[in-house]
């Protein structure tokens, strides 16, 4: 392990932020304070944090409908994120986007698209832009196993491969596309195998092991920055809740859920950090209370923020 203590603690803190944030969102939803629906990232924290820890602030990410975790991992402001989810004027998108469409262009978060697979060509385009502008940025594109069956996945990766664009295609394989099990809709077990069809590296990694994800991402970033093109990274993971708030996820066998809960990425990382003597129990508790305070502040900010004026619906259609 070459990681310094500060970085490891930061990664752990980010994962915890995502988990506590999502728990709050779930709770607020139950109190009817979140309009629409929500797609929680709880359980998949190691993917967003592992990948984003290998990126710099100037690098880009493209996100999905299950995007809260990507935002937080890339460094988004918790208050503005929560306010957006609650439909408030102070949110990242002034209440126009909501849970499925958060963006923060100041930190390279190019936004979440709620059309499954649509982000893939957009990420390739961001990669093309990087190449044409001659910077050493990279773009990480998050999507699920379901998206890997969309035409845009194949088209977009083929383009990035052919033009050697600096993109990380990060498949969060949580085994289910909504309620459809992966094995019902593809014969291969590992989405990463598809990389060979485009002549690029494909890596399958334990998506609940943040350090494993980080190492794979770091290698892919290195390749991308020197013009060697994209990598397809498949992170095997599991969502703790259903697809969306209304989904009790009864299609998942109880044993399977129990097994994956045992592999909780946050508990695993914490134990790892204890073993590595990076963190003491006491320090872990301090981090927990610090994160709790930050999340509570975000909730307070969001709840106290005003809704947009109705007429604001007419703004921002054109530049």
């Amino acid at each position: 392990m070459t990681h310094d203590k500060e970085k490891l603690v930061e990664m752990y803190t980010k994962m915890l932020e995502i988990r506590f944030f999502e728990e709050k969102v779930y709770e607020l939803y139950g109190q009817n304070l979140v309009p629409g629906t929500i797609h929680l990232y709880a359980g998949e924290e190691a993917v967003a944090v592992g990948v984003c820890s290998a990126l710099s602030r100037e690098d880009y990410i493209v996100s999905t409908h299950r995007g809260h975790g990507h935002c937080i991992a890339k460094g988004a402001d918790l208050k503005k994120t929560m306010a957006e989810i609650l439909g408030k004027k102070t949110g990242y998108c002034k209440g126009k986007g909501g849970s499925m469409h958060i963006a923060d262009f100041n930190i390279g978060m190019l936004g979440a698209t709620a059309v499954v697979g649509a982000g893939v060509p957009i990420a390739s385009g961001a990669g093309l832009s990087i190449k044409l502008r001659g910077t050493d940025q990279v773009c990480a594109c998050f999507f699920g196993d379901g998206a890997s069956n969309q035409g845009t996945f194949h088209e977009g990766i083929n383009l990035a491969a052919t033009w050697a664009l600096p993109v990380l295609f990060v498949c969060e394989n949580n085994l289910y596309a909504m309620g459809t099990r992966q094995s019902q809709v593809m014969l291969i077990e590992n989405v990463a195998e598809r990389a060979s069809a485009y002549g690029i590296p494909g890596v399958t990694v334990d998506g609940n092991d943040v350090l494993a994800v980080y190492e794979v991402a770091e290698e892919a970033v290195k390749r991308a920055r020197v013009g060697k093109g994209p990598t397809l990274i498949e992170c095997k993971t599991y969502r703790h809740k259903g697809h969306s708030r209304v989904d009790p996820a009864t299609y998942r066998p109880k044993e399977e859920v129990a097994e994956w809960l045992k592999k909780d990425p946050i508990i695993r990382f914490r134990e790892q950090l204890f073993k590595m003597h990076v963190l003491t129990e006491e320090e872990a508790k301090e981090i927990e209370s610090k994160v709790t305070v930050a999340i509570n502040a975000a909730v307070k900010f969001a709840l106290e923020s005003p809704y947009p004026e109705p007429e604001e619906a007419l703004e921002d259609v054109y530049a």
């Binding site: 880009y60 493209v62 262009f105 190019l110 936004g111 649509a118 893939v120 060509p121 957009i122 990420a123 390739s124 385009g125 961001a126 990669g127 093309l128 832009s129 990087i130 044409l132 502008r133 773009c139 035409g151 845009t152 088209e155 977009g156 083929n158 383009l159 052919t162 033009w163």
Partner: peptide, 28 residues
């Protein structure tokens, strides 16, 4: 060829790539 790019027959990705490039500082 860098600025006049022949693409694969992938209409969705031609436009998607244009979107990604446009939001990051280019004018495709």
């Amino acid at each position: 060829d860098e600025r006049v790019r022949d693409t694969p027959i992938s209409e969705s990705t031609i436009i998607g790539a244009a979107v990604g490039a446009a939001i990051t500082g280019m004018r495709p």
